[in-house]
Design a protein around this nucleic acid. Structure first.
Lengths: 347, 347
DNA sequence: TTGTACGCGTTATCAC
DNA sequence: GTGATAACGCGTACAA
């Protein structure tokens, strides 16, 4: 909102019609003659008039603003990988497509999740929010539920005691199945001691990938050695530390919960003087940019991160505009991308 | 804006006062007795009432929304490095501190800069914008100038024909001096054939770093070999290609326009079977996370990216609230961070 | 098909 | 100190 600008009344005067007619034209309502419509349009164009959004919000009770909430789980946003920038590209694209605007919420250093959720809930500017990296009993989810703000999570929601889980809308990938695919690839290649550096286990993605790892081993009749499971945080650093710890137990393969984690693990493997894939094979998850920049290039599970963002926004706007009612869940496809880190020949 | 909520009138009724008094309390205005103030405050707290921002905007002509505009120069945002996430952390933090909200604008794939600038200018939700990666005669800058939207650039602005440059507010670092520091470091270590892979030369940061490179060589009495200058784009890929091209001319050192660029260059150097720093020394710029993840670790120029974002927001809000009038320029400090990529012993 | 009149929830300007 | 009341700019029944 800057300086003094024209309003509906001014345009109406210039066009020789009433304010309501101009309003009808702008909102593409019926019952306006072609003649007046074009005349009004011309003036609007010529003055490059845009209705005052605040006035509009006030009367329609809609802001056309979508919030995107990014909690700071272990600094993943601002330094560790490109997952969130890609997700934002996705949400931004869809939000733009729907003629909305994107309000971005980043958790601050030293701000608790509780405080963060308060900050979001106090703001009344949004028609709905996209939530990611949610954890069990997440205060952010509780807060938006409390104030009745429509939301979609980019993640399977975890337990929320006392909350009807069937009202949650979300978009994600089948992490369990995808993780199984990764581990089965390693099994197929003859690996016997397959380790796992998990993602953040407070997050569904992390939990489900661990579960998929377990299932794949079990299905193959292999024993699960708890020593070969290291709980990480989706970060490079936890991948590095995890691998260092795992090396004591002589794994011949690792499934990392994310590409960034894999990157850290690769560094640890190299520092130990071991070769990839000869001594240790490794599979990642996400297929971020870095997957093609490691040496050797990383075999990984590709998930459509941008599309997750886009879909989340679509679901959200459908809900806001009440085009959709029941719970909406979308599972996007994943794909095993074979590169050089497992010794399989890329077909 | 969700469902039916309470308004000033409701609170007033519960407190047994008038709407105006409640308004005064909320806006911390004087001329309210302590007694009524606390009573009203209690009710506000208890009902967790928040004034309707739309109504507020309508009358105050202020939205308390700051836009942050990120053009997509060679995909830098969503895949190539952590510069923008860090910048966003900075803006977000300051915006939050000032009780504003952050509207994020990302240029879309396939969207021209012209279209992007239109999309931004059409939106009337912002009190001001932070602009980055601006180029010469940038349509985005032209657009915000045209509509009179307050803005601050995170970059020294380039020529804008017919525009009074002295009205531009910006925050940046002294790129020329910083680049000189980097090159002088290489000279001090005895390097004779120092190459430069530049950043994007349409952007001031890119231009100024190149200039600093030239100045340092000249001051040292060294000849400038144009063959040793490769025009890049701040991306890893341009660093990789640039280094491949430069290797033909046998440089013994490289100053890269950014850490990501340096990362690409390092890869090319290694692939050529050369050693760092023995055969080629390399200095980067930014001191991003990746600077400590290359092998060897990267000597680089540190610039305070988050602080750039924070400062930009402060300047902007000062301008919006008319606390500041003249042009405001802030130069943040840089620092040479010596690691292992030049052969100097970190002191 | 068009115009009138009211309401959305605040802040600001007056009186008192 | 406090309370009416007029804006702010738009959408929308309702009347014409």
């Amino acid at each position: 909102m800057n300086e003094s600008r024209l309003n509906l009344e001014d345009i109406a005067k210039k066009a020789g019609v009433s304010r309501s007619t101009v309003s009808r034209v702008i909102n593409k309502e019926p019952y306006v003659s072609e003649k007046t419509r074009t005349r009004v349009m011309e003036i609007i164009e010529q003055e490059s008039f845009r209705p005052n959004p605040a006035a509009r919000m006030l009367v329609t009770q809609r802001t056309h603003i979508i919030g995107v909430v990014v909690p700071q789980i272990s600094n993943v946003f601002f330094a560790d990988n490109s997952y969130f920038p890609m997700l934002l590209q996705g949400t931004s694209s869809a939000i733009n497509e729907h003629d909305h605007s994107m309000l971005l919420w980043l958790q601050q250093d030293g701000e608790t999740r509780q405080e963060f959720s308060h900050r979001i809930a106090r703001n009344r500017l949004m028609d709905g929010v996209v939530l990611c990296s949610i954890v069990e009993s997440d205060p952010i989810v509780e807060a938006v539920l409390d104030i009745g703000l429509p939301f979609v999570t980019v993640e399977r929601p975890l337990g929320f005691p006392g909350r009807p889980l069937d009202q949650f809308n979300y978009v994600t990938v089948d992490n369990i199945h995808a993780a199984s695919m990764a581990v089965e690839h390693l099994i197929r290649l003859g690996r016997k001691h397959i380790a796992h550096i998990s993602g953040h286990l407070a997050i569904a993605d992390g939990q489900d990938r661990l579960l998929g790892y377990r299932q794949a081993l079990t299905r193959a009749g292999m024993l699960i050695d708890e020593n070969l499971i290291f709980p990480g945080f989706f970060t490079r650093e936890s991948g590095y530390r995890g691998m260092k710890a795992l090396l004591k137990h002589k794994p011949d393969a690792v499934f990392a919960g994310g590409d960034t984690t894999a990157q850290g693990a690769i560094q640890a493997i190299h520092e130990a003087g071991l070769r990839i894939p000869e001594d240790i094979a490794i599979v990642g998850f996400d297929d971020l940019d870095i997957a093609t920049q490691t040496a050797p290039k990383l075999t990984t599970i590709r998930q459509p991160v941008q599309q997750k963002g886009m879909t989340a926004v679509s679901l959200l706007i459908d809900r806001i505009e009440e085009r959709a009612h029941g719970p909406q869940r979308v599972l996007l496809p994943t794909e095993l991308v074979i590169r050089q880190s497992c010794g399989a020949i890329p077909s």
